[in-house]
């Protein structure tokens, strides 16, 4: 059951990314590039995606997930150096190519060699992240 729910969730996510145009890097870079031909589509996608989630979070205040267990125990709102540094690094890559992790997966079957190279580089980055994260921790402790 948990696997079927994950498959359904991933399918809705993938369908939404394709229909919304978020697998098209020109639309993402068009949103980020305020000095170019600015494209507000991403704001509509974000707004549309936030609506069902607003309802979903309200429903988590009571009861339990359908498959049992408990709703996630979410981190306390602490702003640490990892959140900031990681988000800046991510944003730089996002601006450079116009792809983030979801669309990189969703466009894999039609993104050609470039899309595959991006995905493999992203997986490599993910595998280096724990080491890089600890180095950043040491750097932050020293300063």
């Amino acid at each position: 059951m948990r696997i079927l729910i994950s498959l359904l969730s991933g399918s809705l996510f993938g369908a939404g990314l394709l229909l919304s145009g978020m697998t098209d890097t020109t639309k993402v870079q068009g949103w980020l590039d305020v000095f170019g031909a600015w494209d507000p589509t991403l704001a509509f996608v974000m707004g549309g995606a936030i609506l069902p989630m607003l309802v979903a979070w309200q429903l988590t205040t009571r009861g339990a997930p359908l498959t049992g267990g408990a709703f996630p125990d979410l981190p306390r709102p602490e702003l640490d150096h990892r959140l900031i540094t990681g988000s800046v690094l991510f944003g730089m890559g996002w601006g450079l190519a116009g792809l983030c992790p979801g669309p990189a997966m969703a466009s894999l079957t039609f993104g050609g060699t470039g899309g595959l190279i991006f995905l493999l580089s992203m997986l490599a980055g993910m595998s280096f992240a724990p080491k890089l994260g600890s180095q950043l921790d040491r750097l932050a402790a020293a300063t």
């Binding site: 948990r2 729910i5 994950s6 359904l8 969730s9 991933g10 399918s11 809705l12 996510f13 369908a15 939404g16 990314l17 394709l18 229909l19 919304s20 145009g21 978020m22 639309k27 494209d39 507000p40 589509t41 991403l42 704001a43 509509f44 996608v45 974000m46 707004g47 549309g48 995606a49 936030i50 609506l51 069902p52 989630m53 309802v55 979903a56 979070w57 429903l59 988590t60 339990a64 997930p65 359908l66 498959t67 267990g69 408990a70 709703f71 996630p72």
Partner: peptide
């Protein structure tokens, strides 16, 4: 493009709601 963005966004959010309410 904006309408498709909104429709696609609603699907993305529904996917998130399914995973949260279904699997936590």
């Amino acid at each position: 493009d904006w309408i498709w963005g909104l429709i696609g966004g609603l699907l993305i959010g529904t996917g998130g709601a399914v995973l949260l309410l279904g699997n936590g």
